[in-house]
């Protein structure tokens, strides 16, 4: 599973990560307005959140070992 790290010391809580993620990975804490990766298992490493973050507070660390279905099959 990919790891999505948000540096809270840099994060301005602008919400661009929530807005840019088309896989609905992020949620925003109601009390603190701090975004967080609520569903990292659905991250497809498009990196739109990282590119869209205006202050460089977010990093997507890609898990290159996750499984993919076999393209050749067993038949």
């Amino acid at each position: 599973m990919n790891l999505i790290k948000i540096d809270s010391t840099l994060c301005t809580k602008c919400g661009m990560c929530f807005k840019s993620c088309w896989n609905d990975v992020f949620r925003v804490d109601k009390a603190t307005r701090q975004p967080y990766a609520a569903y990292p298992e659905d991250c497809v490493e498009c990196n739109y959140c990282e590119v869209s973050c205006p202050v460089g507070a977010l990093t997507v660390i890609i898990d290159y070992a996750k499984p993919m279905a076999s393209c050749y099959g067993n038949k």
């Binding site: 993919m68 279905a69 393209c71 099959g73 067993n74």
Partner: peptide, 13 residues
């Protein structure tokens, strides 16, 4: 979803 991917993905399918 994983199971349907395993059906659709193989070239011979």
């Amino acid at each position: 979803t994983w199971k349907i991917q395993c059906i659709m993905t193989p070239v011979p399918n």
